[in-house]
Amino acid sequence: MTEPMTLAATEAASPGPFEPKIVAFLCNWCSYAGADKAGAAQIPCPDNVRVIRIMCSGRVEPEFVLQAFRLGADGVLILACHAGDCHYKEGNYRAIQRHRLLLQMLEQFGIDQQRCRLDFVAASEGEKYVRVLTETVEAIRTLGPLGLGPPEAAAAPGPV
């Protein structure tokens, strides 16, 4: 057992607020363009979100999301075109359907639904892009780390 730390020592050692790691899948035509728009307008945005560009939100496999969690992401964001605006007609609808399934399943895995958000950002919606990102970062900051960690740790034996 270590000695209890003094308050000052605790503060000094405090790592600051939890900074979640978030992976965002952005469709090329609407949401990535929306993100570019936010950039062009130089709207400050939390740096916690790492963007992966895909052609269509319909490309997002549930495996991408699970793998992101496994690799240390605290949250995943899928951004799609608005209904009726999909460059590929229906990809965003498939994304919605898969997302509904995913949410249902993540719940069984004890992963809060806020950690996997699907939203819709048009090419013109730079401000919405920043808002969705900010909200997501804050929501996940409140939830705390997902802490899946390496799988070995989860499987560590212990007394009955």
């Binding site: 993100a35 570019d36 936010a38 950039g39 062009a40 130089q42 709207i43 400050p44 945005c45 740096d47 963007v51 560009r53 920043v130």
Partner: peptide, 17 residues
């Protein structure tokens, strides 16, 4: 790697950027 619109132009803190 989009380090302009997705990083430099939206991240105020240089270290984080």
């Amino acid at each position: 790697a989009n380090i302009r619109e997705h990083v430099a132009w939206i991240t105020p803190d240089p270290e984080r950027a």
